[in-house]
């Protein structure tokens, strides 16, 4: 990880010094353990703030929307796929970007680790696949593989799909992971169980829209939930309004979602809203053989027509 950080700093410093980019988007240490925050470096002197570890789960593609300047961006596998999606959707031009690819071996699930201990965690370090958690009067070592974010545990695109620079050799991609076990479990339920499952899932939602704000796909100038003329969806905590928000947001991500997990990570009450987007991701994969953000040359399934598109739902 230290090697990654050093390499990121070295590349960023070079890019800024040579004026190849006006700004580098990366991560710096947050004020709390396991909370890195996005950071925008504009001067070569400030490059030393940049870090890389297993808490860089935020999707940085989110900060590229409609930018005009030349940007260096640090991208792990999922970020790079969202950058591709941004380019395809004309939200940024490829020429504007210098993509600093980071082969990623997963981000850790901060919430799960916090839940594991009754005391407050004051410091978290990591070395070679181990996470060392320190509190006021305890210290514990965890295996990183055991505390990965759910989406990272089933990720099959850990290496950046496009990059101009690469900070390390590509990591081995995970093979034979069952990506959709949780979705199949829901699919097997009968309608009533499904309804209750989601009722339960969303009961804690406070409609803060953190999931939307963290999502690189959610870049509409005015989101449908913020519109008031016409008002598409009620703004209350009513379970129907909450549900409408979540499933409409998921539909907007159909065929675009890369399952980066930014939404779930951002949620202050820990709702796994990925079960919505992931269902659509599964459908796009199974029905259109599509995985979002893998290539700049292919149009997404929802804006092209192919004679072989599935149509058995139309009577």
């Amino acid at each position: 990880m230290v090697a990654y950080t050093d390499k990121i700093k070295e590349i960023s410093r070079r890019l800024l010094k040579e004026c190849q980019v006006e700004m580098v988007i990366g991560f710096r240490k947050g004020t709390l353990p396991m909370m890195n925050e996005p950071c925008f470096v504009k001067n070569p002197e400030d490059v030393d703030q940049l870090v890389w570890d297993s808490n860089c789960g935020i999707n940085l593609a989110n900060y590229l929307t409609n930018r005009g300047e030349k940007i260096g961006i640090i991208a792990k596998g999922c970020d790079s796929r969202n950058i591709v999606t941004h380019i395809i959707e004309n939200k940024i031009k490829r020429e504007q970007l210098v993509i600093i690819g980071v082969p990623c071996d997963g981000m850790i699930d901060r919430r799960r680790i916090i839940r594991m201990y009754s005391e407050e965690i004051l410091e978290v370090e990591e070395t070679g696949g181990k996470i060392i958690v320190k509190g006021a009067d305890f210290e514990d070592t965890l295996k990183k593989a055991d505390v990965l974010q759910q989406n990272c545990a089933v990720c099959i695109h850990r290496n950046p799909v496009i990059h101009d620079e690469l900070v390390a050799d590509p990591v081995a991609e995970q093979k034979d992971v069952d990506r959709y076990a949780d979705i199949r479990e829901i699919e097997a339920m009968d309608p009533e169980q499904k309804w209750d499952y989601f009722e339960n899932l969303l009961s804690a939602c406070i409609r803060c829209y953190a999931c939307r704000n963290a999502c690189p796909l959610c870049y509409c100038p005015t989101c449908f939930v913020d519109e008031s003329r016409p008002q598409w969806v009620g703004k209350s905590q009513n379970p129907m309004d909450v549900r409408t928000f979540h499933f409409l947001r998921a539909f907007h991500c159909a065929g675009r979602c890369t399952d980066c997990g930014a939404c779930e990570r951002a949620c202050p009450v820990g709702i796994n809203m990925r079960v919505f987007t992931k269902k659509l991701e599964k459908d796009s994969f199974e029905q259109f053989g599509w995985e979002a953000g893998l290539s700049l040359d292919e149009r997404p399934p929802l804006d092209t027509y192919k004679p072989g598109d599935p149509d058995d739902f139309i009577k």
Binding site: I186, Q193, W195, Y197, F198, F247, I314, K315
Partner: peptide, 16 residues
């Protein structure tokens, strides 16, 4: 929609 618990059959698509 069905994934979310709407009964199958309540939503239908047709091309006429």
């Amino acid at each position: 929609m069905e994934h979310m618990g709407i009964e199958p059959g309540r939503i239908q698509f047709s091309w006429v």
